[in-house]
């Protein structure tokens, strides 16, 4: 298992090289001069040339890219063109805010999405199922920022219950300021989690082992949770982890609408000011968090499905025989 994780982490290296090279090239080919961004329009030709030389912008693309990677390997993400502050510090100081927002959104999505999905599946084609299907479709298709704006109009401007902007300092105002952006981000994800749960549960519902479980005379709730849901979890884990990975990279539009001081907004600002090092830093964070979430999903599979676990385990390591009563007890409490 550990060997597998290490292998997967090593695979991150080519992924990152690919992503950084791609983005770096696109940014270098973009028709703008970073120096004008830094010095403003009124700068002299000489000052601009000096600045180019200082930033190494006159070197060929490959040399610049290798230099960038070399610095990265030394933990240097470069300095923002605009603020002249180290990119790494700026991103890291914003990252906890993004994690907080992403986690709240995921909690909303999962806590509502999975039970609704199960209910829809168990009462397939009922009124509830149809309402959930239509609602889900609307939530998935609705652009996040637009839902965000609607929520702001209703709850912040009309009802004045919640703040429309920023992140609260003390716990109460922090929670208040979290509600609207979390709902904004969580709604779409909730809908996809719900649909995924529904189709996955519908599939496991028809399996023979569900009949076996029912024939034992155990309670329907136990049949649903232990036998249906547990077998239906893999696609639900996949979609949740991917969505969480997306969110951790920062959600540009929602963070901007709510002026949330996270990495998404930082990235959008960087793009607006053509701040190459800041954009690169954000992209790297985005791809790392996405890949790590992917890996986490794969690890979670092993905990849900013993068949997958046995694939991860190396052949040499023979399974130890555990005392069955003890193992069963553990399993039951899990």
């Amino acid at each position: 298992m550990i060997k597998y994780i290490v292998k997967r982490l090593l695979l991150l290296i080519p992924v990152l090289i690919g992503v950084t090279f791609f983005v770096f090239t696109i940014l270098s080919l973009a028709p703008y001069d970073p120096v004008t961004v830094i010095l403003g329009d009124g700068a002299t030709e000489e000052a601009m040339e000096n600045m180019r030389e200082e930033l190494g912008l006159n070197d060929p693309l490959l040399v610049r890219y290798v230099n960038y990677i070399w610095d990265l390997l030394h933990g240097d993400f470069g300095k923002s063109y605009k603020t002249r502050l180290p990119v790494a510090d700026q991103i890291l100081s914003r990252f906890p805010n993004t994690i907080l927002l992403a986690s709240c959104s995921m909690v909303i999505a999962i806590v509502l999405g999975i039970p609704l999905g199960i209910l829809s599946a168990k009462k397939q084609y009922s009124l509830l199922d149809n309402v959930a299907t239509v609602g889900g479709l609307i939530s998935v298709s609705m652009p996040n920022f637009w839902l965000g704006l609607l929520l702001v109009i209703l709850f912040a401007l009309k009802l004045r219950w919640l703040p429309s902007q920023g992140m609260g300092e003390d716990p109460v105002s922090l929670i208040k300021s979290l509600i609207l952006p979390s709902i904004t981000l969580g709604t779409g994800i909730m809908a996809s989690v719900m649909r995924m749960t529904r189709s996955s549960v519908l599939e496991t519902m028809r399996q023979d082992y569900i009949s076996t479980a029912r024939s034992k005379g155990i309670a329907e709730s136990r049949v649903t949770v232990r036998h249906m849901l547990k077998n239906a979890l893999i696609p639900i884990i996949t979609i949740s982890a991917l969505q969480f990975g997306h969110l951790l990279g920062g959600s540009m539009l929602t963070e901007t609408v709510f002026s949330w001081p996270g990495v998404g907004r930082y990235m959008l600002d960087a793009i607006k000011t053509k701040d190459t090092p800041a954009i690169m830093g954000s992209v790297i964070l985005m791809s790392v968090s996405f890949s790590i979430m992917n890996l986490l999903a794969d690890i979670l599979y092993a905990f849900v499905d013993p068949r997958i676990k046995s694939q991860y385990q190396t052949k040499k390591k023979n399974k130890q025989k555990k005392s069955p009563a003890e193992d069963g007890g553990k399993e039951a409490t899990a």
Partner: peptide, 8 residues
């Protein structure tokens, strides 16, 4: 197919 694959 009549045993639950994810429970011992």
């Amino acid at each position: 197919t009549s045993l639950n694959p994810v429970t011992n």
